[in-house]
């Protein structure tokens, strides 16, 4: 794997919902195994950007995308097998969405869409992914109980495990901690840092402090424009654009 080439290259990406632009000619790279934090006020196009990266936008009829997104140098718009793309680029949503089934079934849901798995292989996957998402110790004795009985924070980590189980290279987080308590938030962030060894991660967040805590680099979006992207330290200490400074110091947003 050559580290010199970026994992993802976004070029002149524009997203329209009907006639309303959500993202306006945005270009940037995402490096291998970094956590890129994306910050910005509401309606700045952060979530639309994520949905474009695994082509979930194509499920929304009124959305149209121009520009290109390269994953490992290949335009994802030309990928025939969109399901495979979505397995490579996983997604964790803002609201924890545990499916109404057991914890084990939730974790294995994604793999079972692709193939049948044997019991002990499944056990291995369940344990390793739940360990990676820092949930294992809390649920190891009740894997076969309903996932709906878990707390919101636990459910969100279960969703992360479920995403990990299909073996993604890239993980997208859409404000994953917006509804969580501080302890669960800390555990999710801990998990993200551990996952850096093998995954490229993009974290959309409303919480600038979270971006500062976990982001290697941070991008600031405003009204569909990319104002600035740089090392997180730089964004939070010497941003080059005055709007970025105003936002990160809490003057608006």
């Amino acid at each position: 794997m050559t580290q010199s080439n970026p994992k993802i290259e976004v070029k002149e990406l524009t997203i329209l919902f009907g006639a309303t632009p959500a993202l306006n000619g945005v270009s940037f790279d995402v490096r291998h195994q970094e956590i890129l934090a994306v910050i910005g006020p509401a309606n700045s196009g952060k979530s639309s950007l994520l949905l474009a990266l695994n082509r979930m936008l194509s499920r929304i009829h009124e959305a149209s995308v121009t520009g290109s997104i390269l994953l490992d140098g290949r335009d994802i718009g030309n990928i025939e097998d969109v399901e495979d793309l979505r397995r490579r680029v996983g997604m964790v949503y803002a609201m924890p969405i545990a499916l109404p089934m057991t914890i084990r079934e939730n974790v294995l849901f994604g793999i079972r869409l692709k193939r049948t798995i044997r019991k002990n292989e499944g056990d291995t996957i369940v344990e390793s992914t739940l360990r990676s998402s820092f949930l294992w110790d809390e649920v190891k004795d009740r894997l076969d109980t309903s996932a709906l009985n878990l707390s919101g924070g636990q459910q969100q980590r279960l969703c992360l495990a479920r995403t990990l189980a299909v073996g993604p290279e890239v993980i997208l987080y859409d404000e994953p901690c917006s509804g969580l308590d501080p302890i669960s938030t800390a555990k999710v962030e801990e998990a993200m840092k551990e996952l850096k060894t093998a995954h490229t991660q993009i974290l959309v967040t409303n919480n600038t402090k979270q971006a500062a805590r976990v982001g290697d680099r941070t991008a600031f979006l405003l009204m569909g424009e990319l104002v600035e992207i740089d090392d997180t330290d730089k964004i939070f200490t010497f941003p080059s654009d005055p709007r970025t400074e105003q936002y990160v110091t809490g003057k608006f947003g």
């Binding site: 979930m56 399901e83 397995r87 609201m95 479920r162 995403t163």
Partner: peptide, 23 residues
């Protein structure tokens, strides 16, 4: 059935038909 169930399945690589049959 909540839309989010469909989104989850699709984001995990379900085909359109799998979204319907599984989630």
């Amino acid at each position: 059935v909540p839309t989010s169930y469909r989104d989850v399945a699709a984001s995990l690589g379900a085909t359109r038909w799998q979204v319907v049959t599984k989630s």
